[in-house]
Simulated scan of single mutants.
Amino acid sequence: MDTKQYIETGILELYVYGLLSETENTEVSQLAQKHPEIEAEIVSIEKAIVNLSTSFSPFLSAENFEKIKAKLDLKHSKVIPMKSISNRNQYIGWAAAAILFVGVGYQYLQLSETKNLVATTEKEKANLQENVASLELKNKQTTTALTVVRDTKNTVITLGGQAVSPTSSAKIYWNKETEVVYVDASGLPEPPEGMVYQIWSLKLQPQLTPTSIGLLSDFTANKERIFAVEKTSDAEAFGITLEPAGGSKSPTMEQLYTLGKV
């Protein structure tokens, strides 16, 4: 019989784990008695499993493992009787179960850590995207502000503070050719919650005629306080009032914050 080929079939591992039938166990036991190489391989497999169990299992006492190891270290002068094999297989099965339990626990821990890492990464990605969007918006606002201020074709109208807010101020940048209007509201205080600044293009003759040309929405988000509003062609003055959110059809004169003639 070629014992090397027999060993390489893997049947001895199944024998050690107690996964063979009684007939197969008897066959292996008899062959082990006849062939020292087979018996030595069985002992080697048992020692390997016990050593691995000792390294990883936190559930078995060191004393029990030492007893098992001491028993396995004894030189076998004959094949262990079937009853002893059954007990030995019980111990080996116990060790294998402990290894399996540790392995499952380790895999679960790794899975939990991976999920936490993915969640953290997604959060960091979202924060980064938010920061990038914020920087892009700020850059756009800054570029717009510089373009408006540097445009020599713009007529600049200074709006002074009125009775309700004497310290307020604003500037209108009006290109009369294109009729485009920008408002620099950096001199206005933060509007109260539920209120919004409204821009009015005013005709003074033959009578005062106000026309709304826009709201200064998202006042807090616009750090540069430069706002594009609707075009106008025939304004003689500009005014800014504080109105309820959504704006008003006509200006609330008691809430006139700034006013200036062209």
Rank of each mutant, 00 (worst) to 15 (best):
S29E: 08
I38C: 03
E41A: 13
V50F: 11
S61F: 04
S134G: 15
L146Q: 15
K249A: 15
K231H: 02
S86L: 15
N222H: 07
E130H: 12
L111Y: 13
A235W: 00
I99N: 02
Q110C: 13
L117N: 13
V156N: 10
V229F: 05
K125L: 15
A32T: 00
I157K: 00
F219E: 04
Q129S: 08
E37R: 08
Y257V: 10
V156E: 13
G160Y: 12
E66F: 08
I99R: 02
V156M: 05
K176I: 12
F101G: 04
A235Y: 03
T211Y: 06
K171Y: 09
E230K: 11
T211C: 06
L74T: 06
I38L: 09
P210W: 01
V149H: 03
I240N: 00
Y6E: 14
E190G: 06
F219T: 07
K176E: 09
E27D: 09
E27I: 06
L74P: 02
E22S: 13
L146F: 07
F59E: 11
T220C: 08
E63L: 13
V229L: 07
E190L: 10
A163N: 09
L188K: 01
S186L: 07
K83I: 05
Y106I: 14
D151E: 06
A228D: 07
V156L: 07
Y173K: 08
S212A: 14
N116S: 14
E63G: 14
A96H: 03
N25G: 06
A96D: 11
T155E: 15
N222F: 02
G194F: 10
E113P: 01
V196Q: 04
E236D: 15
K140M: 13
N131S: 14
W174V: 04
E22K: 07
E243L: 03
L259V: 11
T147E: 10
E122Y: 07
E230A: 15
A32H: 00
E24L: 15
I213Q: 12
Q90K: 03
L128H: 12
Y106V: 08
T209W: 01
K69N: 05
T121K: 07
G239D: 02
S250Y: 14
T241W: 03
G194S: 11
Y182Q: 05
K140H: 12
L215Y: 01
V262D: 11
E177I: 15
E124K: 06
L204G: 08
T155P: 08
K71A: 03
I199Q: 04
T142Y: 07
Y108E: 09
I49D: 01
V118R: 15
Q5D: 12
T209R: 09
S29Q: 04
L202E: 04
E236G: 08
A221V: 03
A98P: 05
I226W: 00
A163D: 08
T152G: 10
L20I: 12
F227W: 05
E224N: 08
E179T: 10
K176L: 08
M82E: 13
D2F: 04
G260C: 10
S233C: 05
I11L: 14
F227Q: 01
N222C: 08
V180W: 05
E130D: 14
N222R: 09
L135P: 09
G10Y: 03
L72G: 04
P36Q: 13
